[in-house]
Design a binder for these strands. Structure first.
Lengths: 251, 251
DNA sequence: CATAATTTTATTGTATACAAAAATAATAAA
DNA sequence: TTTATTATTTTTGTATACAATAAAATTATG
């Protein structure tokens, strides 16, 4: 009874050795749970509950939550606790814009720094992505889809930008969870392959255009018409009306 | 005797109200101390000592150190503790490259989103910067010089990119502390003014070129010839030789 | 019955206690 | 004297205890 429903999704707990990587282990578990949609945006992340689930004290849970908060995956409200982040439409647009800017720069560097090994890894990643899509393994697809962009960043070779992009990719997953309208993209694998081909061909302008189009297509699949905040406002002001009935407020 | 010399620079402790902003207060104090060169790169940041200085327990110090570590201002070594970061020459180049990329994108947005109020604030900031330079107030100049770029980011309007740039600007200060050769730049105020003028004139290409040149000039003032790591290696292998004497290792 | 005030409960924020690891000091051996 | 080993001290990592705040449940009141 004490472990409430929302966090019940986290059951596979690895005990982890007594090193500091226990920290990382819990961090990865929670990040996966959020990005794989096992923890919905807005879910309360109680320190006590998580501590029981992972078999550690609140101290270490707190550290993990702070890390996730810094990456904007979790929102910490003072004296209220931690919640899975609910990125606003504005924030979603900002993240996608930031990605277009950073990934454009990375395409340029990737074209310069590419090697057969690098490109081979990228192609294998896309192959795995295609496979997961064919098998209908949504979780794996989400992860691998993001991995492609991170691997491209690794090819570009700027670890600082890679760290930024890692955060942006995670946040994108959360954004897709919240705002994706209808079914997911038909197959972005083909777009990924095209981008690799353009990089190999050293066709900078084309590669950049493809990447920008790819990211724009992703954003266009979202329903960012600020309907979310409106709904909140309505629910607040509609308090007097309890059940169905006729609305009294103006449209 | 217990409060060791390195951290003695932090003396002006604000008690802060019992809100969570006590956290922020200590964070700001420590960040300022590092960026204003009162805490040199590599300085050990003992939890106990800092706790005594700020009159709080290690718990809250730990939170602050983790935050600074996430921003790469502090490096945490497991079981060893926290140290003021010592960015490598490679990291320095990465940070400057990331800045060129991000600030180019922000120039574009700033040109679109500018308003008389925004521009006025920018100009006032540069005026304050010039004044601090004339007065020889190095600390204020470092801060204001960074503020210009952050205000420009605010004009651009993408809070996500602003957060990234805030981190990069802080790291730049640390980099300058470590690698600046000779005296500091003659007067980057003029460059800042030129950038504002180009933005007001909506001359995108010119504004971007100026910004890139400005950042490149900053990087060129650094001594990033990996001499730092070499020095470390030498000092390690030179252990047998205690005082002056003739070196036995090959040049 | 609905609303307001109060009490109770639960949860976070912080301090402290203890365990584990690392750094330092001291001692013993070559 | 130098090096290796051991003992001591210091410092970090984690758990727990208590205080402060917020949420809820309860009671009182119109």
């Amino acid at each position: 009874m004490s472990r409430t429903a929302p966090t019940a999704a986290l059951k596979g707990v690895v005990k982890a050795s007594r090193t500091t990587s226990q920290n990382d282990s819990i961090y990865n578990e929670m990040l996966s749970a959020i990005l794989e949609q096992r923890l919905a945006p807005g879910t309360k992340l109680s320190e006590d509950t998580l501590g029981e689930i992972f078999g550690v004290s609140r101290t270490v849970i707190r550290t993990v939550l702070q890390r996730l908060a810094h990456e904007k995956i979790v929102r910490i409200q003072p004296n209220r606790g931690a919640f899975v982040a609910e990125p606003s439409p504005e924030e979603a647009r900002e993240v996608m814009q930031a990605r277009r800017l950073i990934e454009e720069g990375m395409i340029r560097d990737a074209i310069r720094n590419q090697s057969p090994e690098n490109i081979g890894e990228l192609r294998r990643s896309v192959a795995a992505e295609r496979l997961s899509l064919e098998k209908g393994d949504h979780e794996a697809w989400v992860r691998l889809s993001g991995d492609f962009h991170l691997m491209l960043a690794a090819v570009a070779g700027n670890k600082t930008l890679l760290a930024f992009l890692k955060e942006l990719v995670s946040r994108t997953s959360l954004i897709i969870v919240q705002y994706q309208k209808g079914t997911l993209s038909p197959c972005s694998c083909d777009e990924h392959t095209e981008i690799i081909d353009a990089i190999v061909a050293r066709n900078e302008n084309h590669a950049i255009a493809l990447m920008k189009a790819h990211l724009k297509a992703c954003e266009d699949q979202l329903n960012l018409c600020e309907s979310d905040e409106k709904a909140d406002l309505y629910s607040i002001f509609a308090k007097p009306i309890k059940e169905a009935g006729k609305s009294r407020t103006a449209m």
